[in-house]
């Protein structure tokens, strides 16, 4: 197997594992920015991650419903000109606290100068 092909395959395998569980991070980030409906969350995730993260609406919907049941996320219904009311999701105080602590413990480490230097050398 050519070296490039092997690296590409290993990269795919690593990314597949790495991305599992990342959807929550990007969804929370989207909701931290502002209240959003499903389409806006999806659009934010794809745009903010430079297209490296994509999400199916079905999977997003299931996750949001799960987070609602866990009181991490809630929504307001807003009227739209056509069709049923649209749900605008937001992080609850529990969700905000959870996200804050997660970022402090797992994301902020990447902003350390020593780590940035290693990543960019």
């Amino acid at each position: 197997m050519a070296k490039d092909t092997m690296i590409e395959e290993l990269l795919d395998a690593w990314e597949e594992t790495y991305k599992k569980g990342q959807l929550t991070f990007w969804v929370f980030l989207a909701l931290k920015e502002s209240n959003k409906c499903m389409e806006e969350i999806k659009e934010f995730v794809e745009r903010a991650s430079d297209g490296t993260m994509t999400c199916e609406e079905q999977s997003l919907y299931r996750n949001l419903r799960k987070f609602q049941n866990l009181d991490i996320v809630a929504y307001d219904s807003r009227k739209v000109s056509k069709g049923p009311d649209r749900k605008y999701y937001y992080l609850t105080t529990t969700g905000e606290e959870l996200f804050k602590r997660f970022v402090e413990r797992n994301i902020m480490i990447f902003t350390k100068e020593s780590i940035i230097n290693l990543l960019t050398q």
């Binding site: 599992k20 569980g21 929550t24 799960k66 049941n69 866990l70």
Partner: peptide, 12 residues
């Protein structure tokens, strides 16, 4: 579990 959800599966 947390509120009926398996812990390991909540954020998958």
């Amino acid at each position: 579990a947390i509120r009926g959800y398996v812990k390991e599966e909540i954020f998958q």
